[in-house]
Nucleic acid binder design. Structure first.
Lengths: 230, 230
DNA sequence: CTTTTTGATGAAGATTTTATGAAGATAAAA
DNA sequence: TTTTATCTTCATAAAATCTTCATCAAAAAG
């Protein structure tokens, strides 16, 4: 389930546009057309993010922002026609996280919403579908389950692929053999941990240019292995 | 002391302008004029925020962003002439936190820097456990099992690493050789305690600027050793 | 100031850990 | 069932690391 977002604007048309875009992205949208409703709705619904117009019929948007900030660190994007530099700076000073001026690009607004939520929900940074290392020397295509070495498709076994992805997900992290066993072979694996060595060997033969001097899967002597791709 | 900010742009003039504004706000500024320098500087200095141009002479800014995101959640503001919607959206998709188009308003940029830092320092999620001594002269990264001396990665053997961590865990505490043997070589160690001396020697050669006058691993004559980092 | 004790250092052999190829075991596909 | 691909284990070779020792330098004691 995706996050709930509060959209506050006195122009119903704007709210409608923003709502449709947000819902297309899977967000739940709640709306307010004035400052008073915005504040009470915020109290009741705890949205994950607020998109706030500055020109509201009752309370000025600036004050709404300030009041929200008294009790909450909710991400706030100001969406307004006031484009002058002093307003922008003032908006940030009031505690806004972003400031978008009308007329605005809905797609760009969506991108900003996602960026802000990504930052605040503190989720792990999602891996992009296409991971590329050393200017395309090694490419992992997560969607297609494909790995290419200097453009050539290499056939990885299921375990090799999983091992590579585990490494790629946490570059530079040092994994002990036990960790790798748990992550790649499963928590209930009974066998012994040196099996990982064999898989590392096979994987290296497929993706390293020189197995004697590996660039991707590095040995951490006495501990385990580490992914060192750039 | 305010945060350290990395500014990356191939136009020295832009870097100069941004630097002057940032310094006026009290930030420490480090600069890079190409992607390669940006990445190595980032690794070395761990800045609190990155301002990144997209058009760089060597590696495209997009790739720099992606690479940073593989290992770090550092806030990234893209500062670029590419104003088209698709570029903006793509920039956010790569993991940028904000996107500012040239020509830009320095004051507005400052406001965005502050907003982002306000947001991220509030989270204060340490990415990896870093122990730093003498203003970054010696840095221990526990997750990555990495030790850096003046930014340079030093390769420690398992025992050296464990020894260093044992010291670092209790700065100023004086350890007898027997204690170190038990903690580092194991309670069931049979050998003799002067082995520790050899490991201390090797460790000193890797992390001390002057082994004749050690700053970190100090000898306590007649007793043992002590870690003297700040 | 000399003697005695303790620490520092370089090098060699011993030990531990990792790499690798191959064989048997297991699982999946035909 | 047969065939094929994959996984696990094992034995051995190779590499990295650890321990010890002999020697020299430094500190404490007499």
């Amino acid at each position: 389930m995706k996050s709930k977002i509060l959209v506050v604007d006195d122009e119903p048309k704007i709210v409608e546009v923003v709502r449709s875009y947000l819902e297309a992205e899977g967000y739940a949208v709640i709306e307010a057309f004035n400052g008073r409703d915005a504040l009470s709705l915020f109290e009741r619904e705890y949205p994950a993010l607020v998109i706030l117009d500055l020109m509201l019929p009752d309370i000025p948007g600036e004050e709404v922002c300030q009041r929200l900030r008294r009790t909450s660190r909710v991400p706030i994007i100001m969406l307004t026609a006031k484009a002058e530099e002093e307003y922008v700076v003032a908006g940030f000073d009031l505690g806004a996280d972003d400031y978008v001026t009308k007329p605005f690009s809905p797609r760009q607004l969506m991108a900003r919403v996602e960026a802000l939520l990504r930052r605040t929900t503190a989720e792990a940074i999602p891996l992009s579908k296409l991971l590329s290392y050393n200017e395309g020397d090694l490419v992992i295509d997560c969607d297609r389950h494909e790995v290419r070495k200097t453009g050539q498709l290499v056939a990885l076994t299921p375990i090799e692929y999983k091992l590579l992805l585990t490494f790629a997900k946490y570059p530079r992290k040092v994994f002990t053999r036990d960790e790798l066993v748990t992550l790649v072979l499963g928590a209930d694996y009974e066998g012994f941990d040196r099996t990982i060595d064999a898989h590392v060997k096979n994987l290296r033969q497929k993706i390293e240019s020189d197995t004697k001097d590996p660039k991707y899967i590095l040995t951490v002597h006495g501990i385990g292995y580490q992914f060192g791709g750039e």
